[in-house]
Amino acid sequence: MICVVDTGAANLYSIQVGLERVGASVEISSDPGRIKRADGVVIPGVGAAGTAIDKIRASGVDRVLAACEQPVLGICLGMQLLGRSSEEAPERLLEVMQLDFTAWGSSAPRKVHMGWSRIRSLNGDLYRDIDEGAYMYFAHSFATGLNAWTMGISEFGSEFSAGIKKDNFFGVQFHPEKSGDIGTQLLKNFVEMTC
C-alpha cells in the first residue's frame, strides 16, 4: 500500500492514477497512523509551499513524515517540503535535508521552468532503466542548486537538483506521473522499492 499524503494539493488524482498504472494500491490520507503503516509514502504538491506545510503541521503529519523509515518520494513541491526553507514561505519545512529553495534568478530564461528537460547524473534504484539525458516534465518556479543530496541534475539557465536523496527519502523536482513512459518507469522503480 502506497499512501499519498493529502497535502491539500490539487493534483492528488494524477498521482494516484500514475501509481495505480504501475500496479500499486493507493490510498490518499492525512492520517498519521495510516502514513506510518504504509509500505511507501508519496508527498505530492503543487501550488504554494506555505499552504502545504501548514496543512501538514495542522494534522501532525510533519513529525510522522520526518520519522518515516519506509521509502518516501516527494514530487515537485513535495520534494521542496523535504528541505529546510523556501523563499515563498516564512515557515520552516520538514528539514529532512538542509536545503533552501529559491525563485529563479537572473540567469534563468523565464520565471517559470515549464516543459520537458533532460536529466543526467542518474544513479541508484529510482532511476533504474532510465537513460542518461532522458526528458522529464517540469513545472516549477522555485529550485535548489547542486548539493550533497543531489541525485539527478537538470539545467535551466544554471544547473539545479532535478532529484535529491537522503537514506530512504527521495525527491524529484519533475512530475514523473506526467513524464510519459519514462516517468511511469520511475514510479514503477519507486513502487518496487516498497515491496
Binding site: 490539487a10 493534483n11 492528488l12 488524482y13 494524477s14 492514477v17 500514475g18 498504472r21 516534465y137 513545472a139 512530475h175 506521473e177 506526467k178 513524464s179 510519459g180 513512459d181 516517468g183 511511469t184
Partner: peptide, 28 residues
C-alpha cells in the same frame, strides 16, 4: 486516466471552485 503527459483544460472556468474541480479530476 488515459494518458501520462500533461494536459490543460479550458472552457468556462470562472472561479477558484470551478478550477479546483478540474484539477481534482486530473488536469495539470
Amino acid at each position: 486516466e488515459s494518458i501520462n503527459i500533461p494536459f490543460c483544460v479550458a472552457g468556462g472556468i470562472r472561479s477558484v471552485e470551478d478550477a479546483s474541480k478540474v484539477f481534482a479530476s486530473g488536469a495539470d
